[in-house]
């Protein structure tokens, strides 16, 4: 499986209490388990099954994911910024791999 490279779009600064929009994407084939190869054998499922966003250790948003989410899963959601800190994103693969990304947000 190709390398899974997360991309996130988070504002670097925000006002205290502001609700910001966050966009995330990760490269992943999201093999649904429904497809067959050229010999007619089913291709085993391999998807990202969980996505989590935490800010300074508190959960902001989480998605439990099924094979009906498109390849290169994209999530857009919001967060109320209470203070300066770091938002951490985690993607969990069916094969047990965990991919993560972090970005700092500064309250001005």
């Amino acid at each position: 499986m190709a390398e899974s490279k997360p991309r996130v779009k988070v504002p670097k600064t925000a006002a205290k209490g502001e609700v910001i929009t966050i966009k995330t994407l990760i490269n992943h084939t999201m093999e649904s388990g429904q497809r067959k190869d050229s010999d007619g054998n089913p291709i085993p499922r391999q998807i990202i099954n969980m996505f989590t966003a935490e800010f300074n250790g508190s959960k902001v948003f989480e998605a439990e994911i099924e094979p009906a989410i498109s390849a290169n899963p994209y999530f857009e959601f919001t967060m109320r910024v209470p203070e300066s800190g770091t938002i951490r994103f985690t993607w969990v693969d069916d094969d047990g791999s965990v991919y993560s990304e972090e970005q700092a947000i500064e309250v001005n």
Binding site: V19, S58, V60, I69, Y74, F75, F77, T78, R80
Partner: peptide, 11 residues
């Protein structure tokens, strides 16, 4: 902490 219950994805 989500601030609003809004989310988008592609399915």
């Amino acid at each position: 902490m989500s601030g609003s219950a809004e989310a988008a994805t592609r399915m």
